[in-house]
Design a protein around this nucleic acid. Structure first.
Lengths: 345, 345
DNA sequence: CTACACTACTAACACGTGTTACTAACGCGT
DNA sequence: ACGCGTTAGTAACACGTGTTAGTAGTGTAG
């Protein structure tokens, strides 16, 4: 019992004009002459009939889908446990909706990177894409740059000219570590957010190093661990630190999500935060302020990141703005809560 | 420097057959006769030229977009703080990808419900949609049922015949509350996950009531609160309970996300979990097991929910399976961790 | 009266695919 | 030689829109 679809032809017949006129009016094409009366009649008829243009036909004719892709380059498990994702999606949705753009979400497995990235775009499913925390091998990276698909990275990639939105990870990590140093800590461990292949991870470790060096504290490589996004990996890293026999009174964990697991390992070892160990996180996920104790952390402006990435991408799509190298670095902020304590000797 | 798009016409010319043949081969249309040699030649040429069919053209011609919508009916803020969303998305992505289906994500504001739901589908952007934790007023509900857009609800709605996937909220809540009773608690408070308009909320409260009644414990209405999805609301509810002057030794919180906030209110009041207050949650978000203490909670099978919803929707789309009333109820499981303690008199 | 600009439209093609109705060629039994 | 079924494929239309080139009709200056 399908109700017949209302097409622009129906609207045209109702008013007694051509389909072209209907299209011109509804798309508000500039520099074209349509009498005000006709224009109004078309608008009325369209509303009356409940005309909704067919998006696929529009896309086919105009070469614009009005959809962008959010492409996640992680395993399903990492997506499921990504505490940051809801914020990104929320920011993206609100920004895109204002421009009447839809969001298609997809994920690619690391093995199929080289081809998978393009299928969406080459099939004209989307006008452009946002890659979230990308990890790109050289092949995929070069392929991505050579094909002209508007692409914006969330988080940057070394040796890439692609436009991106990111924060200054080095500086942010340095700030967090310096805060711990300022409290008197000298034996400070570091658990990074992800494996070193993900650009942000080594950057944050570098910031940690810089802070130590500036304070003339020797860097102890045995106090550095690389986690793998989720709490479980944080738990493992902290356990490994505890078992190493190295001494430390504070830890900079470059991801709140990882810090959650790290803290649970501390608890298992009967170490209290902040009394025995001070903890600084990174990201400021919604649950950071409610953890026990509330987690001192570096706030990543998730909404701004998503919004900027979206706007940047839309610019790219609309203007095809040549070789104007576009990269946006956003500010971070150290949010001081209660997971750190001055070192008492 | 646009590389010219490779169309099926190019493939056809390369092989020296008609475009129809190419289409028949690539879509593997059954009951049609194509010689094995030609078939192979077409496949080879398509691969060689890197032919990727244009999704918009396919959609226009076939009336199938091969995309489904995940529609969130909440405010951006609630999306940003939804700890359950990543799991849903992850489950949906993996299930849909197997069928080569894409996922379009959108959200509707409550005010524009009646029309907004259909824009996506009426514009042929998607073949069907999944509504997540819907709250529907009568108007939107009836409109939704009358228009033939394949729709599956995640979480059910009273007085609706729409297919849905859900858990038995009443039974699950009863199980959780009974567990507390079994530990000797008699003064048990309840903080529900959401305002009563969202069906799951009153259902979970009902389960809580049932458990008390079965144990012949009088229900104290002053011990019941309705939160609003996020930790902040849980914090406020718990504060309200504490200030009410009512006595309680345990709380059933019908959402882990809300429980996070509730626990932080307890901490502020210098009450320890589980020594002073026992706590049971609901959902088993990834962070529940890492909280301090690890949270006893009712596990919602997120992946299964997403998967079932996806499969159900795809069935609906493909077969248009008449008025076969389809609803799936999945099992929950009480995960006992360390946030509860027997009541010591 | 003619040339020309301007207004208010429309006819016709393009986008790239799916699909139905049709055909040419061929083998085979009589 | 003829009829007929089968094989292997094609021509042509449909999907619903955007867009360019063009065209009647009207006013207006020379």
């Amino acid at each position: 019992m399908h109700r017949k679809r209302v097409t622009s032809k129906d609207v045209a017949e109702r008013v007694g004009v051509s389909r072209t006129t209907v299209s011109l009016v509804l798309n508000d094409v500039r520099g074209i002459q349509i009498s005000p009366e006709t224009r109004q009649k078309v608008l009325d008829a369209a509303k009356e009939l409940g005309y909704i243009p067919d998006a696929t036909a529009q896309a086919l004719a105009s070469r614009r889908t009005r959809a962008i892709g959010l492409v996640l380059t992680r395993t399903p498990h990492h997506i499921a446990t990504d505490a940051f994702l809801p914020k990104i999606i929320s920011g993206l949705l609100t920004t895109a909706k204002k421009q009447n753009i839809r969001i298609l979400i997809d994920w690619v497995e690391t093995e199929h990177q080289d081809t998978a990235y393009f299928e969406l775009a080459r099939a004209n499913r989307i006008d452009g894409m946002i890659l979230s925390t990308p990890r790109l091998d050289d092949k995929a990276l070069r392929a991505l740059e050579s094909v002209d698909i508007p692409t914006v990275l969330m988080g940057n990639v070394t040796d890439s000219n692609l436009p991106f939105v990111d924060v200054d990870n080095v500086k942010a990590a340095e700030k967090a570590t310096s805060y711990l140093i300022g409290l008197g800590h000298r034996n400070i461990a570091c658990i990074s957010n992800a494996p070193p292949e993900y650009t942000a991870a080594p950057e944050r470790v570098e910031g940690y190093r810089n802070a130590l060096i500036k304070a003339e504290i020797p860097v102890n490589e045995n106090l550095i661990r690389y986690a793998d996004f989720d709490p479980e990996s944080g738990y493992q890293c902290m356990k490994s630190l505890l078992q190493s026999g190295e001494r430390f009174t504070a830890v900079f964990v470059a991801s709140d999500n990882v810090a959650i697991g790290a803290k649970s390992a501390l608890r298992e070892a009967n170490l209290r935060v902040p009394d025995d160990i001070s903890l600084v996180g990174f990201d400021d996920i919604p649950w950071a302020q409610y953890s026990d104790p509330p987690l001192t952390t570096v706030k990543l402006p998730a909404e701004s990141i998503a919004q900027s990435a979206c706007m940047l991408l839309l610019d790219l799509i609309q203007e095809n703005s040549g070789n104007k190298r576009q990269q946006i670095i956003l500010d971070t902020e150290l949010i001081i809560r209660k997971s750190c304590k001055p070192l008492s000797i």
